Computed example of a mutant assay.
Amino acid sequence: MVRFGFVFSMIATLSLSTSAFAQSSSAQTAVDENFLGLETAVAEAGATPIASIDHARLAKAEGVEMLASRVLIFSVPEINTPILKGNVRAGLDLPFRVLSFDQDGRPQIAYTDSQFLKVRHGLINTQALNAFENKLLDVLNDLDAAPAPTKGLITNYGIIELRSELSVSEAVERLKTAVMGQDDTVWFGEIDFATEASQVGVELPDAVLLLFGGPAPGGVAMADFPAIGLDAFCQKLLVYANEEGGSVVIFNDIAALAELHYGSSAEPHHGLNKRLTTTFRTAIE
């Protein structure tokens, strides 16, 4: 079951009085065109859009300048479920996501592929992984896109984990309250993977993915690291049932993902990690 968050559509009017502004405007136009092509391809592939997030315009509305960046998250439950059956923690990297962004004046498209899922979550179901990859390549067929790097990636790389005695439903409600109690955070939606799986005749442990982000702190974190928009700014928080009772909460280590993409990280990444960890831990204690 998917609960949709707000739909954001912001038009930015930019002055072209200098060559720098002109270059920025040109890159933004290219990023927007690539994104429009992606949205069209997703619709033609029969996938369900979950969230469309314009990082740069949301950040600009909060007074933070960053390079053009837009991410599209879309889903196919029949493809998600076999992967989750292999390892429910793979829900942190589901459903599909593709990023259109400006890297130093060069518009690019990045995506999370099946190899990333396989390595990070120790998946062995080749059929499920192939189905994921085939659907993704079907969407990206006419687009010049490249997968996220996997060099240096290992099982559970860049995953921060917390445990709670609360049930999944209790933990989810407390986390949502904590997240939306912060005045710089925007809600994008949530996905109940267990409910999705039941609709295709498969039983999964309770697992809910929460999607939200902070435009201002996220924009600062992405300023020199735009490719991390594939996994950050729309922060993904997975809550799933612990076999021993209670629940497990996992989310991305933003500094680790910056290091995966760029070979280095910055203080805003570590600061966000600390803030998120403190917020989530307090919520579920």
Rank of each mutant, 00 (worst) to 15 (best):
T195V: 13
V31M: 03
A45Q: 08
L92Q: 02
Q182I: 01
V208W: 00
L166V: 10
Q115W: 12
S52Y: 05
S164T: 14
H121P: 06
A22S: 14
I228F: 12
L137N: 15
I83A: 10
K118M: 14
G152I: 03
E173P: 00
I73N: 01
T13G: 05
R281V: 00
A227G: 13
A30F: 01
N125R: 12
L84I: 09
L136H: 00
E243T: 15
D54L: 00
A68S: 15
A216C: 11
D102E: 09
V172C: 06
T13Y: 13
G219Y: 00
A131W: 01
V139S: 11
L204Q: 08
T195G: 13
T48N: 10
G152E: 06
F35G: 10
A47W: 04
A178H: 08
Q199T: 12
Q182Y: 01
L238M: 10
A110R: 04
A255M: 04
G86K: 06
D253R: 11
L237I: 12
T112H: 00
E259I: 09
A90M: 05
G37K: 09
L84W: 09
S169V: 12
M10H: 13
K135L: 02
T177L: 07
H261T: 08
A258G: 04
G218K: 02
S52E: 10
E190G: 02
V7T: 15
A68L: 09
L272R: 12
H270A: 11
A227F: 07
F96N: 06
I160D: 09
G229K: 02
A22N: 10
A47T: 05
E39N: 13
D253C: 10
T40F: 09
D192F: 13
N80T: 02
P95A: 08
D102A: 08
V88M: 06
E39S: 10
T48S: 13
E173Q: 15
Q103V: 08
V186Y: 14
S264H: 15
R275N: 13
P107R: 07
R57G: 01
P215R: 04
Q115C: 05
E133C: 02
L162C: 11
R3L: 15
A41W: 12
D54H: 14
L84H: 10
A131P: 01
A255H: 03
A90G: 15
P149T: 08
M10R: 15
T112V: 15
T48C: 03
V168N: 02
D32L: 12
A59H: 05
A56M: 04
S69E: 07
E196L: 14
H270P: 01
V172G: 05
E173W: 00
A68V: 06
E203K: 12
I254S: 11
A51Y: 05
C234H: 11
A56W: 00
L175A: 08
G245V: 06
I250L: 06
L140W: 01
E44T: 10
A110H: 08
S24T: 13
L260I: 08
A90E: 07
E243G: 10
D142Q: 14
A22K: 15
F21M: 13
S198K: 14
V119C: 01
P149I: 07
V172Q: 07
I109R: 06
L16W: 02
N80W: 05
M180N: 14
P205W: 03
F74L: 04
S25K: 06
Q108M: 15
V249H: 01
A223D: 13
A207G: 11
S26W: 11
S75M: 15
A145K: 02
W187Y: 14
T278C: 01
Q235G: 04
P217S: 09
L58C: 07
